[in-house]
Design a protein around this nucleic acid. Structure first.
Length: 261
DNA sequence: ATGGTCGCTAAGCGA
C-alpha cells in the first residue's frame, strides 16, 4: 500500500498538477491539505476517473483537507476532537483495507504566525488536542499513519537556513517541543527514520518567494508519523522533489511511504 | 530593511 501526503495549495488551481502526479506516482491513498474550497466545489470527476474514492472536509477560501483512496473509505471522521467550537477544517480520518486495515489521518496543522499572538496560541492548543487524540489512536494498537502539513520544523537540520526561522512560529521551541512530545508517545517520524544521518534536509517545502526553490532554500514541515504497528510495515519512503520544478507547482511536494499492508 | 509570490476572491488575508 502506497500512501502519500500532499499540501496542494488550492485544489481548483492545481487539479492538473494533481492528476498528473497521481497518474505518475500511482499512490493508493493520498491525504491533501489546503484544498481551499467548500465540499461542493471540489473537482471530483478528474480524480474519480483515475480510480479514487474521495472524502473531503472543506472550508470556503482557506484550509480544507481530503482523502483520496483506491480502497473504500471506512469509518470516516471529520474534524479534530477536543474543541467543538473549532470551525477550521484541518483534520480527516478514515480506515482503508488493503492486505490489512490501516487507519489514515490527514492533517493541516495551524501555521501559527505571527507569534506571539492568538494564532500561535491556537497552534499550540491544536497540537495539544492532536497529541491527546494521537494517544487514543496509538492505544488502538492498529497500524496508524498520521500525515500532513505539520507546520513544524523539527530540528535546525530541517531548514536550509535555520537562523532565518528563529522568530517564526514553525521553529519556536514551544512548537518543536509539542511535536517532540507526540513523537515521544510512540510515533515514528518516517522521513527522519529513512534519513538518519543527513546534516541538512531533506526538505518538503520551498517558498514561492525570493527564488527559494532555485537556491534550495527549503524546510521540512510535511511529516509522516507511524504508530509502532505501522512502522513495522514500512518498506519504502520517498519525497517527490521533482514536482516542485514543474509548471504551476504547489509550494509543497508529495511525501510517500509504502507499507506492507 | 524591504519586498519578493501565490490562491482565493475581488481589497486584503493567509501562507
Amino acid at each position: 500500500m502506497k500512501i502519500a501526503t500532499f499540501n496542494i495549495n488550492g485544489i481548483r488551481a492545481r487539479i492538473e498538477t494533481l492528476t498528473g502526479w497521481l497518474a505518475e506516482a500511482q499512490p493508493d491513498v493520498v491525504v491533501l491539505q489546503e484544498i481551499k474550497t467548500q465540499d461542493e466545489a471540489f473537482p471530483h470527476e478528474p480524480i474519480a476517473d483515475l480510480g479514487y474514492n474521495i472524502a473531503t472536509h472543506g472550508q470556503k477560501s482557506f484550509n480544507g483537507v481530503a482523502i483520496l483512496s483506491k480502497y473504500p473509505l471506512e469509518d470516516m471522521m471529520r474534524g479534530l476532537p477536543g474543541d467543538g467550537s473549532d470551525e477550521q477544517a484541518r483534520y480527516i480520518e478514515a480506515t482503508v483495507v488493503g492486505e490489512r486495515a490501516v487507519r489514515i489521518a490527514g492533517l493541516y496543522l495551524p501555521n501559527g504566525n505571527p507569534q506571539p499572538g492568538p494564532k500561535f496560541d491556537y497552534k499550540l492548543a491544536w497540537m495539544e488536542r492532536l497529541r491527546n487524540h494521537a494517544r487514543s489512536l496509538r492505544d488502538s494498537e492498529l497500524p496508524v499513519v498520521m500525515m500532513g502539513d505539520y507546520n513544524v520544523i523539527p530540528e535546525p537540520r530541517d531548514a536550509a537556513h535555520p537562523e532565518k526561522w528563529r522568530d517564526d512560529a514553525l521553529f519556536q521551541p514551544e512548537s518543536r517541543a509539542a511535536f517532540r512530545r507526540i513523537l515521544n508517545d510512540g510515533w515514528v517520524d518516517a522521513i527522519r527514520l529513512r534519513h538518519p544521518d543527513s546534516l541538512r534536509g531533506p526538505f518538503t517545502f520551498w517558498d514561492y518567494q525570493a527564488g527559494a526553490w532555485q537556491r534550495d532554500n527549503g524546510i521540512r514541515i510535511d511529516h509522516i508519523l507511524l504508530s509502532p504497528q505501522a512502522a513495522d510495515l514500512l518498506v519504502d519512503l520517498g519525497i517527490d522533489r521533482d514536482e516542485r520544478a514543474k509548471d504551476k507547482p504547489s509550494d509543497h511536494v508529495p511525501v510517500w511511504a509504502v507499507l506492507e499492508a
